[in-house]
Design a protein around this nucleic acid. Structure first.
Lengths: 342, 342
DNA sequence: CTGTTAGCGCGTTCAG
DNA sequence: CTGAACGCGCTAACAG
């Protein structure tokens, strides 16, 4: 490993002071004569000089890196969000430190600490920790954070929200508008605000139509990549075993809906002829199955972009968020819902 | 923003020197009396002291962060790899800096440079750059790198390989063993080593059985999330329009296979009754469609783990890779391939 | 316009 | 066992 050059080495070679080298190499607005400037540039180039950001960052107290903490990147929802975050970060010369919390509050706190220690300028987080003490603590110490997906009830954190409740309402009303009356809702454990909101939307839309809600909720949650799919299957079995067959099933997310469709097919029911299925998320894969899944679109990529932009704004102005963003759901009508009114 | 404390502040509070504080707070093996140690620990805790890694890293010349560069995280293949990398990194107290190159060589080089400047200890990369000058350059300067997925022909870089060719052979032989004779291969552009290898495997297995290869290759490549799916559909249309219908279609990856299945269904052909379909990758979605997709499994998560472990080994010993790893494909026989021998 | 100097926060000699 | 002093690579303040 060759010892790497510093500005002092370059300074010596160019027979100038290291300050001058620093000024030209870091594009300072400080005036330097054109001759020296080009000479230094040339020498630095020839010598393959590479700046050490650690030194620079230590001095300037600004690291040009932001942190992202999400449950797991293998969930397409989050990988899409991250892509959006990274795009904006890149355009502003920031880099992103990625952490998967696996919904483990302990791990989440550990990561927050580690990132703070590494002087990240800010954090984009989908927090799972119920006790946000750690986060709060670092915010007090100056950490900028914007929350995504999972609500963080704090004055100081910016929020990129999605109207889950409205999404739940829209999906349910859509089903109702197609003539469905017996509509079941199958869901992963209602232990997260977002899930509760979708459920609320479903319940209120049902009530408003004078219909009886039928809910099947999963028990324990695991982190296998196919958990939600298996969950959809299991919940459907439970649902089907439980008496009168619903004409439509609304699932808390697309992956679960795939499980519902799969189990339905397995038991000899056609979708949407025998039973209609509605998802939630709008992941690409929904259009690849047969029939294409009707669902509610969450603009994940856009959420990532917005979150990152908000964060950068906070960093630049040092201003607290004046306003939160609430992204709106959009109905994606495809072919998994039958029209019963015919 | 509260000004954060340094070891000097703690030193003052504890009425000791900053050296002593450093020694206890960084778990140095240097002897410090138990009384002082506990006193310092207590005070640091009470004062909510958080170390600044920049200072530490600048001094010790070791950053505890590694970089990962992959084409795009929204590809489930790569997100799974990253999860593996991150798991191992976490267990060794490293963090990962993530970069999506979007298969853009210019962007890739820019990222490599940025990471080197940030003093990452090493890099896990799926490189797309045909001209690896930049990478080579930094390796010469001491950067440790392990290549993944895409072969990097350099003595100094460790490689976690997957036997794509054998996978291609296995899939093709499987089809042949089920009595298929007219087997088409549909593929994204053959401009990457991995893709060429799968094709080679297919071609050689066909030849060995005295069968005629039928290949449909896509033209330009885009980066929409559904590119491969659409590609599978388009290639299938082309294939079907081109004369005699094959009894089996082998696709270069699972997503493409989904497109194949979808288009086949759309044109009224049943899978596997009319046409059999074989994928490549083994992504979770494969088991969620009807019929579940027969495919070749790539151990992505394991690839990530192995790559990271190799990298950490290189960092610890500073030793060059003595040996590369070649992961083996595994046939995942599900229900999208018909047995024609009955 | 250029150079000298003094830290940023930390770990590490080297004396005591 | 403890502390004073130096320097990692860089920028910013102040002189010249």
């Amino acid at each position: 490993m060759k010892k790497s050059l510093t500005i002092h080495d370059i300074a010596k070679m160019a027979e100038v002071s290291s300050a001058t080298v620093s000024r030209v190499l870091s594009n300072s607005s400080y005036p330097v004569s054109p001759e020296l400037r080009s000479k230094i540039l040339r020498i630095a180039k020839e010598a393959n000089y590479v700046p050490n950001m650690l030194g620079k960052q230590l001095k300037t107290k600004t690291s040009m890196t932001i942190g992202v903490i999400i449950p797991t990147i293998t969930n397409t929802f989050y990988s899409s969000v991250i892509l959006g975050v990274e795009e904006i970060a890149r355009k502003n010369n920031y880099q992103v430190l990625l952490c998967n919390s696996f919904q483990d509050p302990v791990l989440e706190d550990k990561y927050i600490q580690a990132m703070f220690e590494k002087q990240v300028r800010g954090l984009v987080i989908s927090s799972i920790s119920s006790d946000k003490k750690q986060l709060k603590h670092f915010i007090d110490m100056g950490l900028n954070v914007v929350a995504l997906d999972q609500k963080v009830e704090m004055e100081e954190v910016c929020q990129v929200d999605f109207d889950y409740r409205k999404g739940g309402v829209m999906a349910t009303r859509h089903l109702i508008s197609k003539g469905h009356k017996k509509i079941a809702y199958v869901t992963a454990p209602l232990d997260r605000p977002s899930r509760v909101s979708i459920y609320d939307g479903y319940a209120s839309a049902m009530k408003e139509a004078g219909l009886e809600p039928v809910v099947v909720e999963a028990g324990n949650e695991t982190y296998s990549g196919t958990y939600e799919f298996e969950n959809g299957k299991a919940l459907t079995r439970k649902l089907l075993a439980g008496g009168e067959r619903p004409s439509a099933v609304f699932a808390c997310n697309d992956m679960t809906a795939f499980g519902v469709v799969n189990e339905l097919n397995g038991q000899g029911f056609k979708v949407p002829d025998d039973v209609s299925v509605m998802g939630f998320d709008g992941i690409d894969f929904g259009q690849m199955i047969t029939p294409p899944l009707s669902t509610v679109l969450q603009p994940t990529y856009e959420m990532g972009r917005l979150a990152c932009n908000m964060l950068l704004d906070m960093l630049i102005d040092g201003k607290k968020p004046d306003i939160g963003i609430m992204l709106q759901p959009k109905l994606l009508e495809r072919e998994s819902v039958a029209d019963l009114r015919g």
